[in-house]
Design a protein around this nucleic acid. Structure first.
Lengths: 338, 338
DNA sequence: TGACATTAGGCGAACGTTCGCCCGAACGTT
DNA sequence: AACGTTCGGGCGAACGTTCGCCTAATGTCA
């Protein structure tokens, strides 16, 4: 079956092929009769426009790039998956598709692949996720003046489009809640320093304690990878301390870490929610079915995917940008573990 | 900054633009001196080929399509993520990228999007995952004669390219192991009927029991969604039965389900690994850090991503296909829970 | 030295669209 | 009746490549 072009349709409808183009793009003056005839010819012939030809002519690609990263510590990334789904969905509503590619973030040498894709006119811009302080990707894209928008912030003085969820607020409401429950000794299991999201959440943790006039004890703040293992180790570490020298409540910066903490506490015979409180962050689906069910923070992910894509498309279309940085508020989900 | 084309490079090197094309594509007769001059001009001008133009001329797109699905029961899909990563990696080694799009699988009405993308010459073929018996996507792609390859099988009498992991063997080695541990009463927590992967795993379960001369009790096979919740409910259901009427070992078709079962057993005061054995399937990263650590089945995912892409590219290039169906063997990981 | 093969590179054409301009017919206006 | 407008549709050109053929110059051999 030879490929069907606009010319075949034109021949069938008895018009010039350029007229067919006009009809397909809903522009220009065509009489209702010929228009109907052309649509009929399109139907009968099963014509589909050739994307490459169209792209070449219109100097566009209707493609957005997204760099797929192997999760560094092999932890599940339910939030990223969800974000990506909603981003794709929004993009498709605007006639765009997502092109995924790999970038090696171990050394910054992998970053030029962004420019490569952009210069080849394969994509019109990028979506980023999992950003960090001094993120080399963001620095590079800004410097090269390539359109992009990110889920997550970077340095405060960098001027680019981002959408983020207010982790500071997230941990603040968690700790406020724990204090309200009567806890005065509160620990934190968080990521290593240098994590952008981690820094904000830690700020919220500190804010809330200070606000309540409580002391911030550095030895109650433990850092590690985003794994169940670290959660268990952290809890073990706390348990090893003398009774009045250890937290009665432990806030974790992710549900994955909280699961580890929960496991360890359960295994040690503690009654979580009674003897000790544990909270997570993310509200992964599993959270409500753990024993005990996990108090955690739910993030408005759907909105993020949409807003990020919207921001990117505004840049691509060179429309005025309504709001360069968008900060959304998360929500506290109280369950049995606190 | 105006865009740089092959003609700019040609002007700079003092040759015709077609000669530049020859050099870029490493073909044709060009003297070493001019070739060097042209490469230099390419460097200096920062020329990058225009993908749309190239695609139009060569009638290709170097894009592979993959339909992103929202996980139906919101369960994590670590295997899919891993598969996708390796698939992209392999594709990129062959100069291809991945185009992701959404397809609504609730009604089969969403399926024609595949043909649409293919007919528009936006992609050259597709990768599928999470296949099922009577999978409408596979039926459609076969009927339309569109190149594709899948991770997962469908109906036995359908002739298409797939790579799969032998779930029958997977559950066989699990149950063999349980029997060897002395268990005679073995239950199964599996997915609803109609799941292709579930059916194979169940066959392996039955195989192994029969092989050992043990009875297969239908009331010890429970079906539900791929969630922690179902795992917990299933275990609860077993526990509610009289002592000699309940399994002493429970095999689960996924780690997620096993986690639920583990939780429930732990909460009920059972000593898992002693009083009762529980096994999972997938070897998600969390599995080794659960208490007790989870006996499970590890799948050779990296190989799958590679093989699926290889199979697809063979079709696209119309090379002879070496092996239409590839079945890989999983591996038993024995830990404390059994 | 003449016939022929090889090499370097030029040139026209084509891939399948969209875009802007042009033209003739029909119509309305003064 | 002459003129200006509007409408329907045609036409050439261009987007940036690659491909195949052609030609002139050079080399090779009898």
């Amino acid at each position: 079956m030879a490929r069907i072009t606009i010319k075949d349709v034109a021949a069938r409808a008895g018009v010039s092929y350029q007229t067919v183009s006009k009809v397909l793009n809903h522009q220009g003056n065509v009489s209702p009769e010929t228009e109907a005839r052309i649509w009929e010819a399109v139907q009968e012939s099963g014509y589909r426009p050739n994307v490459s030809a169209r792209n070449l002519r219109t100097q566009s690609s209707n493609l957005i790039g997204y760099a797929w990263q192997r999760s560094l510590d092999d932890s599940p990334r339910p939030i990223l998956d969800q974000f990506l789904y909603d981003a794709i969905s929004t993009a498709e509503q605007h006639g765009y598709h997502l092109l995924t590619f790999l970038v090696d973030l171990k050394d910054a040498a992998g970053v030029p692949i962004y420019k490569e894709l952009y210069d080849r006119r394969q994509v019109e811009g990028f979506i980023l996720a999992d950003t960090n302080h001094n993120d080399p990707r963001i620095a590079y894209l800004m410097e090269q003046d390539i359109p992009f928008a990110s889920f997550g912030r970077a340095n405060d003085d960098w001027d680019f489009c981002w959408v983020d969820i207010d982790g500071r607020h997230g941990l603040r409401i968690v700790v406020d809640h724990l204090i309200e429950q009567g806890h005065r000794q509160i620990g934190l299991l968080t990521w290593p320093e240098g994590s952008e999201a981690g820094a904000y959440r830690e700020e919220g943790f500190v804010d809330s304690l200070r606000n309540a006039g409580l002391e911030v004890r550095p030895d109650w703040i433990l850092r590690g990878t985003n794994t169940v293992q670290f959660g268990a180790e952290g809890m073990q570490h706390f348990r090893a301390r003398p009774y009045d020298e250890r937290p009665t409540a432990v806030a974790c910066v992710s549900d994955v870490i909280a699961i580890g903490a929960l496991n360890d506490a359960n295994a040690a015979g503690l009654c979580v929610g009674q003897d000790i409180a544990i909270t997570g962050y993310d509200d992964i689906p599993m959270a409500q079915y753990l024993t005990p069910s996990l108090t955690t923070v739910r993030q408005p992910i759907v909105a993020v995917g949409q807003r990020v894509v919207d921001l990117l498309l505004q840049q691509i279309r060179e429309e005025p940008i309504t709001e360069k940085g968008i900060l959304l508020k998360p929500e506290l989900i109280i369950r049995e573990s606190s």
